[in-house]
Amino acid sequence: MSRAALLVLADGRFPAGGHAHSGGAEPAVAEGRVRDADSLADFCRGRLHTAGLTAAALAAAAAHGLDPLALDEAADARTPSPALRTTARKLGRQMMRAARATWPSPELDALAAARPRGAHQPVVLGLTARSAGLGPVDAAHCVAYETVSGPATAVVRLLSLDPFHATAVLARLAPELDRVAEQAAEAARQGIDALPAASAPLLDITAEAHAAWPVRLFAS
């Protein structure tokens, strides 16, 4: 494996469109549930262990070589919110374009052909990691990190939170990120039936509310 390839894939500047999404932080800020660095940390921790673990395991499974179409179906069943399914597919399509230009592979081509409107983003990311010669734990790390870095970055803009404080939140979560990535990769090794389905009721509910806002800063 190439450590540099992991840095390229995990880089927030990788052109896959993630910066436009708050990961549910925008409605949480609007409702006053996230208002400072402490509540941001609590939000990120909750998201990491629910939606984050589920997505990381899907990515690890794709990187491990499990059938991406079966994983895409498993992702649908784990995403009851249509707003979040739409977001995941939109991000998956953007990730696919970047991935095919960066690490082309027949597996990416096949998934792009089978899901022209986009597969779930974690599945695409996992397959991208595989095409880049990375492993399941790497893919899980990327997704787990995205799960918390998205909201942290968004909250800097939404609350004018000190970026140093937001980054400190991420740094303090590092040991838990490692554990979630390991847990995700371990589940992926056991096959599709072993994949976690951890979910967060408030994220699902507020995603639908947020999608109906007439004006918002972030797409999701």
């Binding site: 609590d42 990120c44 990491l48 179906e73």
Partner: peptide, 26 residues
């Protein structure tokens, strides 16, 4: 034979962190 819904919820002592926080139960 195909997955329609799969959801796992974990709360209380020993549950992963953040379960009572602003992303999960608030």
């Amino acid at each position: 034979g195909r997955p329609l819904l799969d959801q796992q919820l974990a709360y209380g002592p020993g549950a992963p962190g953040g379960w009572d926080g602003p992303a999960v139960l608030g």
